[in-house]
Amino acid sequence: MSRYLVNKFLFTVDRDPEWVERYREDPRGFVAWWEAEKANSLLNCHSGEASTWLAFEDEEREALATHDYVRLFELGAHPFLTLTLFIAMFERDYDEPLGFQKEYARRLAHFSLPYPDIAT
């Protein structure tokens, strides 16, 4: 379980307009690139330093590579991070106001309390 790294992916992509577009257009390629090049970047630290141990589990990589926000919810990704990034990528494809957000809720409708643990 590398819930922290899934959150780190969502967090770093969401704050970069160029990455948002790259992730929208080529999710599998972008996730592979990010894991290889960025997963071990220490945020808020000197740029020359990096971690050495961070990698996705297969199911996490696959959920990210398929834009599967339902599976991300199930895996305990932080719901706010997932929602914010996916709104940035897909709200534009819906004509009705909040259309994407409402579909997002419908696709999660089979979850009941307690929701998957989000603690990291």
């Binding site: 919810f73 719901p79 997932t82 929602l83 409402k102 419908r106 409708a109 979850f111």
Partner: peptide
């Protein structure tokens, strides 16, 4: 609720 099934009701 944000990012869950009860959002944006």
């Amino acid at each position: 609720e944000l990012g869950g099934p009860r959002q944006f009701g």
